Simulated assay, not measured.
Amino acid sequence: MLDDGITFRKFVATDLDWLVESHAALYAREAGFDDSFGPLVADIARSFLVYHEVATESGWIAEHEGNRLGSIFCVRADRVGFAKLRLFLVLPEARGFGLGQRLLDRCMGFARGVGYEGMILWTHKSHEAACALYAKNGWRCVDERDVHSFGCDLVEQTWEIVF
């Protein structure tokens, strides 16, 4: 399905509904998240559209033949000198073709290129494929704790990489 026809473009306002709906539906189906997750994604994406710093923050949409297949964002973290990876998504029909790696490479390359010292991200232990991808790329899990979020008992993790 995927070939050299994959394009990566900047996230724009017309992607907002797709981004929120895709995250909400996928996480409900695959992880059992309740309907509190979609509004969180919407808040993050809307804030990005209004407040992001063009020189040091970016979001990308992966497409193939006009179909959106995934997303990833690089934003400034609260930790000085670090960026935060956010809203990383690869739709099921696009998995297994290296798209997640390509999105991660784009995000990390951007962060390095604009001078961040490293990156952090927040995820859940149950997202095994994503966690394996992070580990393969030099990220390490630096914290984990049991939480009840989005209607589920989860193990929340913080990962980081120093460039």
Rank of each mutant, 00 (worst) to 15 (best):
G113L: 04
Q157P: 04
C141I: 02
Q157N: 05
E144Q: 15
V162R: 14
R29Q: 15
V155Y: 07
H148I: 10
L91P: 03
V41G: 00
A55K: 12
L99T: 08
D17T: 10
V75F: 05
W18V: 05
V114M: 08
R29E: 14
L19V: 12
V12S: 09
A77R: 00
V12T: 13
K136F: 04
K125D: 15
D15E: 10
I161P: 00
A94L: 10
W122S: 02
W60N: 05
F82L: 10
E57R: 13
F163N: 08
L133F: 02
H52F: 06
R68P: 01
A45Q: 01
S126A: 14
E63R: 03
D153K: 12
S47Y: 11
R106C: 07
L40I: 11
L133H: 02
P92R: 07
V114G: 03
L85N: 03
Q157R: 15
F48P: 03
G81E: 08
E156H: 14
G118E: 15
R145D: 09
G118H: 09
R68S: 08
D4K: 12
A77L: 00
G5D: 08
M119H: 00
C74E: 06
G151C: 13
V142P: 05
G66Q: 02
R9M: 05
F82W: 02
E21Q: 14
Y51R: 15
G70R: 01
G32E: 12
A111T: 09
L121S: 05
G32N: 11
R79C: 00
E65M: 02
G38Q: 04
M119D: 01
A129F: 03
E65N: 04
F33N: 04
C141L: 09
C107D: 11
G96I: 07
